[in-house]
Write a protein that binds this DNA or RNA. Structure first.
Lengths: 185, 185
DNA sequence: GAGAGCATGTAAAATGTTACATGATTTT
DNA sequence: AAAATCATGTAACATTTTACATGCTCTC
């Protein structure tokens, strides 16, 4: 019943009780690895998780800002998360618009195609630099926490390392493909 | 107006005139890099492309099999494809359910999590082997065609190389992450 | 006789994005 | 005075997946 987004939210709430607004910021930042969502999808999903008994909320009244709902994971939610996390999964082919464009480069102007690839090389290099910065901070934090595998940092670290590998590989491919286009005439 | 799927279809038809059925098989195979679709999405999309004037079809009557519609790209379609292919594009964060699960591994049973990662390591290794096989064939074909950049092979080759890099990096990460989980206690 | 392949479509449901809607406080 | 931040929601639209629907031929 619960979607991937639902479990993503459940894990974030398990890490720390928080509001829908907090969750929506996390899932829109560029450091949100491998899943994203807008607030318009998050609020209804939180309602579903709550009616499934996976989370509860308490209203915190504020005077200067709007009141807010802080969500907390329940025992049932934690149990469901643990089961889902290790359930078998087929590898899913990913979608990437740049690669669809690339497949059409045999029809395109080589100089313009090379420029597009150079632009993406730069974008992925920037993303990589961002991740490398977080890596240092995260490793530090993990060190101080005694390298424990049962703390949120561990999950974040594993996915961050995948993000680093992904961006590095993508940047290198852009560089190679751009050179191919530039050499082509 | 035209979606990414529309342009993906347009490029495939530009490579070779074909039917909706042919397209649906291509976009469901595991060698279809970086975009997929079911036939239920393809047939309506072809109708849109045709009403936009980007493709036309001729009906081929068959006696032993059902009649079929062979779609061909028009000059307007080719022009639209060439413009779209090099139009600027922001990098889009990718979605990957395994990584969402991984983020929750701090809550999961380490042995079960390691097993899941080992399974994906195997799946990505298989995909990589498949791509490496195609690579040899494609390079051969391209060699014989005089290494021209204006043939469909070129686009296929560029995307294939990205597929190879992607799968290799993913396999290596799975191996590393599995070792992390197995070492953890 | 059952199932797979060829071939084309529609309907319904789930998921994701963009836009609409409100309203106070703080910063530029 | 305009824009950004906090905070929560709904509505409309686009995209994607799953299921429904038909029918003929060939293979096991």
């Amino acid at each position: 019943m619960t979607s991937t987004l639902g479990y993503a939210l459940l894990n974030l709430i398990a890490c720390e009780p928080q509001t829908g607004y907090d969750l929506s910021r996390t899932l829109q930042e560029r450091i949100s690895f491998f899943w994203q969502a807008k607030h318009s999808q998050i609020y209804p999903e939180l309602a579903k998780l709550e009616s499934a008994g996976f989370i509860t909320h308490e209203v915190v009244r504020q005077t200067d800002k709007p009141d807010k709902k802080i969500y907390t994971i329940t025992d049932a939610g934690l149990a469901a998360l643990r089961v889902w996390a290790v359930a078998p999964l087929e590898i899913a082919p990913s979608r990437d618009e740049l690669l669809v464009k690339t497949a059409a480069f045999w029809q395109a102007d080589p100089a313009a195609a090379a420029a597009l690839l150079r632009d993406h090389e730069r974008q992925h290099a920037e993303q990589l630099a961002l991740y490398e910065g977080i890596r240092a901070a995260l490793e530090d934090e993990w060190e101080r926490a005694g390298r424990r595998h049962d703390l949120p940092w561990f999950g974040n670290y594993l996915t961050l390392m995948r993000g680093i590998g992904y961006e590095r590989e993508y940047r290198d491919w852009c560089r190679w493909a751009a050179a191919m286009m530039e050499a082509g005439d």
